[in-house]
């Protein structure tokens, strides 16, 4: 299991940074393979924005003396990562260097759920007791409107189209929800994080999320899902094998020489 940092700000920053970083890493693997060329371009902008958000958090950690942002992003082993299980899952079968069989229904369902959860967190972070975190949230929030609109459009349209598409979306959503147990969790650091008023409690945010997505779930005639207890809690460094595989790929070049300028 991973170490718990004494400073709850550090703990929360790692969760936020790793979430956005892994989510955008998975997005970057999709580049060039989306179902529609125009969408490929739009999707990549969202991925870039999200990696930009991760960079904001890693830089804050760098400022707190935790190490260089690039090293934090590339070199921490899976056991030290604090991202939710949802964002580390691969995009589908097969590896991207060979013949990946990526699942667009899963991409849309995951992105919609992840982005709506992110919105709820960012809104809460705007009133964080930590000034720099609050400022980061205000900035990041600017780009979220587009991400939400984009994924909501795909999510609703695919659910409300053909029977085949609806089946695929239903299956994908189930798969996504099964991994959401730790999405709003702060892991073992929960008490310290909420006591320090860095962000509201897990339960408050979860309830708010349920209210937030309700109108969209009504339009697709699906009950708002509830998240179960996490089998693994990513916030505590419990991860799948796929995360370490991803880390090995993302750091393949960087780790050949940590002191070199790239």
């Amino acid at each position: 299991m991973t170490q718990k940092y004494e400073n709850p700000v550090v703990e929360l920053l790692f969760q936020l940074a790793d979430d956005d970083y892994l989510f955008s890493y998975r997005g970057s693997e999709w580049l060039g393979l989306a179902p529609h060329i125009e969408e490929d371009v739009a999707f990549s902008s969202i991925t870039q924005d999200t990696m930009g958000h991760a960079t904001v958090y890693y830089r804050l950690l760098e400022g707190l003396g935790l190490g260089v942002a690039d090293t934090l992003a590339h070199m921490r082993p899976a056991t030290e990562r604090k991202n939710s299980i949802l964002v580390e899952r691969p995009n589908g079968e097969g590896v991207y260097m060979e013949t990946p069989r990526y699942d667009w229904a899963y991409a849309v369902a995951r992105s919609y759920i992840y982005t709506t959860a992110k919105k709820i967190k960012i809104d809460s972070l705007k009133s964080s007791s930590d000034q720099s975190l609050a400022e980061a949230a205000v900035k990041i929030s600017m780009e979220l409107y587009y991400h939400l609109l984009h994924w909501k459009t795909w999510f609703v349209q695919l659910f409300n189209s053909t029977e085949d598409a609806r089946n695929r979306m239903t299956k994908a959503l189930e798969k996504v929800i099964a991994d959401c147990g730790d999405l709003f969790s702060y892991g073992d650091a929960a008490t310290e994080i909420t006591n320090a008023s860095l962000i509201e409690s897990e339960q408050v945010l979860l309830n708010r999320w349920t209210e937030y997505v309700k109108p969209v779930f009504e339009t697709i005639k699906v009950a708002v899902p509830t998240f179960g207890k996490p089998e693994r809690n990513g916030r505590n460094g419990e991860h799948t094998k796929e995360l370490q595989d991803a880390i090995n790929t993302m750091s393949e070049v960087y780790r050949t020489d940590l002191t070199a300028a790239w």
Binding site: S44, M51, A54, D70
Partner: peptide, 28 residues
């Protein structure tokens, strides 16, 4: 795109992503 996830730093990852995105955009 093979080098997008492997680009060595955050800045390089973002840069090459934007570049490959442009290629798709030029295709469009």
């Amino acid at each position: 795109k093979e080098w997008v996830p492997k680009a060595p730093t955050l800045y390089r990852k973002l840069g090459i992503m934007a570049k490959v995105q442009d290629e798709m955009g030029h295709g469009q």
